Computed example of a mutant assay.
Amino acid sequence: MKISGIFTAIVIGVVIGVPGRLVIPGRQRIGIWWTILVGIVAALAGTAIAGAFNVADTKGIAWIELAIQIGLTALGVVGVERFTGRR
Rank of each mutant, 00 (worst) to 15 (best):
M1P: 13
M1R: 11
M1T: 10
K2A: 14
K2M: 14
I3F: 13
S4D: 14
S4F: 09
G5Q: 13
G5W: 08
I6N: 09
I6W: 11
T8Q: 10
A9C: 11
I12F: 06
I12V: 12
G13C: 05
V14T: 03
V14F: 10
I16W: 01
I16N: 01
G17V: 00
G17H: 00
V18K: 01
P19R: 00
P19Y: 00
P19K: 00
G20D: 01
R21M: 03
R21T: 04
V23K: 01
I24M: 04
P25T: 09
G26W: 10
Q28V: 12
Q28E: 10
I30C: 11
G31E: 11
G31M: 10
I32A: 12
W34V: 07
W34A: 11
W34R: 12
W34I: 07
T35G: 13
T35E: 09
I36T: 04
I36V: 10
L37E: 09
V38Y: 04
G39N: 03
G39R: 04
G39T: 01
I40G: 09
V41A: 09
A42V: 03
A43S: 12
A43T: 01
A43R: 02
L44W: 07
L44Y: 04
L44D: 07
A45M: 15
T47I: 04
T47N: 09
T47K: 05
T47D: 14
A48P: 08
A48L: 12
I49Y: 03
I49M: 10
A50P: 04
G51L: 04
G51C: 02
A52W: 07
A52I: 13
F53G: 01
N54I: 02
V55M: 02
V55W: 00
V55K: 00
A56P: 06
D57M: 02
K59T: 12
I61K: 00
A62F: 03
A62T: 07
I64W: 01
I64L: 07
I64V: 14
I64E: 02
E65T: 12
L66A: 05
L66T: 06
I68L: 09
I68H: 02
I68M: 06
Q69H: 00
Q69I: 14
Q69F: 01
I70H: 02
G71M: 12
G71A: 07
G71H: 08
L72H: 08
L72R: 08
T73C: 12
T73G: 04
A74Q: 03
A74T: 07
G76H: 08
V77G: 05
V78W: 11
G79D: 14
V80F: 12
R82V: 14
R82K: 15
F83S: 13
F83N: 14
T84Y: 14
T84N: 14
T84M: 15
G85M: 14
R86Y: 15
R86D: 15
R87Q: 15
